[in-house]
Design a protein around this nucleic acid. Structure first.
Length: 407
RNA sequence: GGGGAGGUUCCCGAGUGGCCAAAGGGGGCAGACUGUAAAUCUGUUGGUUCCGCCUUCGAAGGUUCGAAUCCUUCUCUCCCCA
């Protein structure tokens, strides 16, 4: 099976500028293709990851992958899907973010033997000269046409600066650069990038008289059409310091049934037969599929060891077996364990609850358990006896468990 | 440059002098029901020493016993004209 069919079967493909042509080249020759990632944060999130999975499939099929870090484009900011202009990042931030992101990408894509190339568009965008650029590149862009593009739609009401308007131009220029320097003939990316990607095709045709194509991947959406990977803390990050492997595992352990199939297809490398078997499990058995899913994806991102730990922790908390050694832990120093330490202070000092009002609410609504015992009194004191082997388990709601360790 | 409309709590969006910590919806959190699911229902959703007090309605001043609401200046956005 060729790479295109693999992507198609696993549900990655959203749309292409020329599906037949793309399918043909992907099955008959080695294609050099690129995918861009803007360093708007110091970590990628699950939405980026799905494109990395697709790239990985393509690389396994023998294609040459260029991963582009958008140090230059991120200095402008992609207006797509945004209601307002994003805060401009400093050059220093961009540089740091780019380093973090490069490291993450490198975990999934191989750069050995010229199978992959890592580039940063700041290298060619930063030094551009304005007038020559306008005369040679900008002249090929029709403002009339650009204004009809979907990505500017919301911004036509909210306001769009010339700075952001140029984002699409920069991205098209990137494609041209990569075509000239690496003979890159295909750009891939999330489906939200569709309109940003399109103009690159025209630019290359006009400048180089060559035919190139773009291919977009479905965004990771839940079955009811919402963006997946949103948590109370924002995105589901790939960086273990921003989203712990346990949280990560739990996210996928708890997705709704209807999303299991898609996630298994796109976020794991499990063979399709196995994917189909798992996602067809009836009723309660679906939990087994979710366990596999959560484990597999955590393994890909955080490694086997972390995935095992997360699995064990979940087992300990929800089925009462296994070790709770790796449960999220907060520390409390002995000096703070005074005669006045009540529940409210405990949650405040350990940072488990953001405010006393919230703790109050939690207790009033019966959502707080300490050592499996429901707390009903706000002023209940916490004493040394409550710590078993210097540990105490705080349960917030049904699914959040935190260990408080006395140090 | 001229004219008009706006900036409200996490988001959308009511509110045009006291009954406003601010309707409604979304999202979040908690409870019930469950399969650590979804859907549904209920409660809750600025802080705190919790029937009180403090901070909040673009920013800074002012009027008033009292302002998200009125006035002044500033700032940002949209629309129309040039």
């Amino acid at each position: 099976m060729n790479a295109f069919d693999v992507l198609k079967e696993r549900g990655y493909i959203a749309q292409s500028s020329n599906e037949e042509a793309v399918k043909k080249v992907l099955s008959s020759e080695q294609v050099t293709l690129y995918c861009g990632y803007d360093p708007t944060a110091d970590s990628l999130h699950i939405g980026h990851f799905i494109t990395l999975m697709a790239l990985s499939h393509l690389q396994k099929a023998g294609h040459r992958i260029i991963t582009l870090v958008g140090g230059g484009t991120a200095s402008i900011g992609d207006p797509t899907g945004k209601n307002d202009m994003r805060k401009m990042l400093t050059w220093e931030d961009l540089k740091q973010n780019a380093e973090g992101i490069k490291k993450q990408i490198s975990k999934f894509i191989s750069y050995e033997n010229d199978r992959g190339v890592m580039v940063n568009n700041v290298d060619w965008l930063l030094g551009l000269e304005y007038l020559p650029f306008l005369r040679e590149i900008a002249v090929h862009f029709s403002v009339n046409r650009m204004l009809t593009f979907e990505c500017y739609k919301t911004r036509m009401e909210q306001g769009l600066s010339l700075l952001e308007f140029n984002y699409m131009v920069m991205q098209s220029y990137d494609f041209l650069q990569l075509y000239k320097n690496y003979h890159c003939t295909l750009q891939v990316g999330g489906d939200d990038q569709w309109s940003n990607m399109l103009y690159g095709i025209d630019l290359i045709r006009k400048k180089e008289q060559a035919e190139v194509n773009v291919l977009t991947f479905n965004l990771l959406l839940t079955s009811d059409g919402k963006k997946m990977g949103k948590t109370e803390k924002g995105a589901l990050w790939l960086d273990a310091n921003k989203t712990s492997p346990y949280e990560f595992y739990q996210y996928f352990r708890n997705i709704q049934d209807d999303d299991v199939y898609n996630c298994l297809c796109q976020l794991t490398f499990l063979p399709m037969d196995e994917v189909r078997r798992l996602s067809a499990l009836p009723g309660e058995k679906m939990n087994d599929a979710k366990k596999v899913l959560a484990y597999e994806i955590t393994k890909i991102i955080h490694g086997e060891l972390e995935a095992k730990k997360a699995e064990e922790t979940a087992l300990a908390l929800f089925s009462g077996s296994g070790s709770n050694e790796n449960m999220p832990t907060k520390e409390l120093s002995r000096e703070e364990l005074t005669a006045e330490l009540n529940i409210i202070l405990l949650l405040e000092k350990t940072g488990i609850s953001p405010s006393r009002s919230e703790t109050r609410r939690l207790i009033e609504q019966g959502g707080l358990l300490i050592n499996s015992e429901k707390m009903t009194d706000l002023n209940q004191l916490i004493q040394l006896e409550d710590f078993k082997e210097n540990e105490l388990i705080v349960q917030k709601g049904k699914k959040t468990f935190i260990k408080v360790k006395l140090i």
